[in-house]
Amino acid sequence: MKLSYWRFLIPLAFQITIVASVALVPLSIVLTGKTVILRTTAFDPYELLRGYSQVLNYEFNLLENLKKLPGGKELEGNREFYLIFVAPKNTNSVPPLPWQPIEIVYTLPQNLPPDRVAIKGKLIGGYIADYGIEKIYIPETEREQINQAVNEANRKQEGAVEVKVGRSGQAILRSLWIGSSRYEF
């Protein structure tokens, strides 16, 4: 007995919905989100040799740095929070200046002024914060080039990333700034 096409098309549509729902949120953030520059403290040098991905670190990953900010005292356990960043005075310089974290809040802030943005983070196991922007995938052909640039940036302490931030506080990595050169992925 032959199965009707509906028995095939409905689950296929379901699978496509799954795929689309995974892609839709980040895609809309990339298209409509706010561009923010964040300073990276050090690039993890080991991950680079291992594969195509690279682990990035930020000052605001560390709990001790977050504790210094207003609202940081209550941070503990596996708590979710929003880190508010303020834009630099000069936004047209190349390389762009990084945004600075200024405050921690625990509910998604509404009506932020245009020079501020909230990024959602989660404290993990009570010692390190995760923002979902700690890993970047590097195309195979650009690996060598980026490898060298990263080593130089590590020495001069001038690495930065460009992220898009959506209204929900989710951040998506767009590109890597090493000195004045930009690598987009």
Binding site: P26, E134, Y137, I172, L173, F185
Partner: peptide, 8 residues
Amino acid sequence: IAQTFNLS
């Protein structure tokens, strides 16, 4: 897709 958007 997760890799395309650097989703961790």
